[in-house]
C-alpha cells in the first residue's frame, strides 16, 4: 500500500510539471558542442525537478515503461554505468548492461557489427561508452534508436558536463559570469572538453590550468584562458574543477613523478587560498587522493561538492533519457 501510495504521489507530482520535449531538437546526445543555451537549460530544468523528486519520494515512475535502455560499455566503468542504470530504472524502463570489452570485441567483432546486432533487438536508447574519439558518433549512424554518449575517447562526456552544471547552478544560483578553473590532465579529458563547451555556451568564463604536456594544441581556441601556475589560475575563481590524472592513457614523460605533479598541480588548501573564499571544489571521480587533490580538501563538507555531483548525475541522466525517448514518440507519431 505504502509503495503504491508513494508512487501515486510521485507520478502526480511529475505530471503537474508542464513539459514539452518537442523543443529539444536533437535525436541523439553525442556531445555538448552544438547544443544551444536553450537545449542545455531545458535538460537542467528537467533534471532539477528530478533531484527534488528523487529526494522526497522513492519508487519508480512509469514515464519510460515498456522502453528498453541498453548500456553498452566498451570501457570499464562503475559510476557512470550505475548512474545510467538507476536513471533508466527510476523512469520505469528496462535496463540491460553490456560490457563489450569482455565479450565480442575479443572475438574480433567490429564496432559496426555490435551496433547492428543490438539495433536488431530494437532498443529505444543506447548509452555508449568507447575508448576511441568519434566511435559513439559512428555507431549512432548505424542504429535507429536514440544514442547517448557516455564518453568517447578524449572527445566528449556530455552528461558529466550537464551534471557539473546542475551542481554549480544549484549552489551558485546561475552559471553566467562565473569564473571556472579546470585543472589537471586536460589533454586526455573528455570531461574537460564537454565542460568547456557547456560553460562557454552558458556564459561562464573558463580557465585551464595544467603543465604544457597535459594541454592539447591550441586549447585556448576552444574558448579558455590557459595557465600553467595553480595560484595564478585559481585567483578569484568561483569554481575549481579538478580532473583525474589518467595515467592509464599515458605512456611516458608527461611529467617526471607523481610527487612533482602533486607539488605543482595538486589541489591543497595553500593553493586553494587564491580562489574566492566560497569557491566550490568539484571532481568527476574517481579521485586519486594525494595525486591531483589532497584528501582533506576533497572531504571538506563546506567546500567540496564532489558527492553532490554523483547525486546530480542520476537526475541529469533521467532528464536526458526522458527527453530523447519522448522525441522517439514524436517521431513515430509523425
Amino acid at each position: 500500500m505504502l509503495a503504491w501510495g508513494r508512487r501515486r504521489a510521485y507520478s502526480a507530482a511529475m505530471s503537474k510539471t508542464p513539459f514539452d520535449s518537442s523543443v529539444f531538437p536533437q535525436r541523439h546526445l553525442l556531445g555538448i558542442e552544438g547544443l544551444s543555451p536553450l537545449d542545455i537549460s531545458l535538460l537542467l530544468d528537467r533534471a532539477d525537478e528530478y533531484v527534488e523528486l528523487n529526494r522526497s519520494v522513492g519508487g519508480k515512475l512509469d514515464t519510460l515503461a515498456g522502453r528498453t535502455v541498453i548500456n553498452l560499455f566498451f570501457e570499464s566503468s562503475t559510476r557512470t554505468r550505475t548512474s545510467f542504470e538507476l536513471a533508466g530504472k527510476r523512469l520505469g524502463s528496462d535496463v540491460i548492461n553490456m560490457s563489450v570489452s569482455t565479450s565480442s570485441i575479443k572475438k574480433g567483432e567490429t564496432l559496426i557489427d555490435t551496433a547492428m546486432t543490438l539495433n536488431a533487438m530494437h532498443p529505444d536508447v543506447l548509452v555508449v561508452r568507447h575508448g576511441s574519439s568519434g566511435a559513439v558518433k559512428l555507431l549512432s549512424e548505424k542504429v535507429n534508436c536514440a544514442v547517448v554518449n557516455a564518453g568517447d575517447g578524449r572527445h566528449e562526456h556530455p552528461t558529466q558536463a550537464l551534471l557539473d552544471a546542475l551542481t554549480i547552478r544549484r549552489r551558485k544560483g546561475h552559471l553566467d559570469g562565473l569564473q571556472v578553473a579546470i585543472c589537471g590532465d586536460i589533454l586526455h579529458s573528455r570531461v574537460a572538453r564537454s565542460n568547456i563547451h557547456l560553460l562557454n555556451t552558458m556564459g561562464a568564463r573558463v580557465r585551464l590550468i595544467a603543465p604544457k604536456t597535459l594541454l592539447p594544441a591550441e586549447a585556448e581556441r576552444l574558448g579558455a584562458e590557459v595557465f600553467h601556475d595553480m595560484k595564478a589560475g585559481l585567483k578569484d575563481c568561483d569554481i575549481v574543477m579538478m580532473l583525474r590524472l589518467q595515467t592509464e592513457r599515458m605512456k611516458t614523460n608527461f611529467f617526471p613523478t607523481v610527487r612533482e605533479y602533486y607539488h605543482f598541480f595538486g589541489l591543497d588548501y595553500a593553493k586553494l587560498e587564491a580562489a574566492k573564499s566560497d569557491a566550490l571544489i568539484m571532481h568527476p571521480g574517481p579521485m586519486n587522493r594525494g595525486v591531483e587533490i589532497a584528501s582533506d580538501v576533497a572531504d571538506d563538507i563546506g567546500r567540496s561538492a564532489i558527492r553532490e555531483q554523483v547525486e546530480m548525475g542520476v537526475a541529469v541522466r533521467m532528464a536526458c533519457l526522458e527527453v530523447l525517448t519522448l522525441n522517439l514518440e514524436h517521431e513515430s507519431v509523425a
Binding site: 574519439s133 578524449r154 572538453r193
Partner: peptide, 12 residues
C-alpha cells in the same frame, strides 16, 4: 595537430 584535432579529441 591543432584546433580541429583538439576539438575532436584526436591525437595530433
Amino acid at each position: 595537430e591543432g584546433e580541429t584535432a583538439t576539438r575532436l579529441g584526436l591525437t595530433g
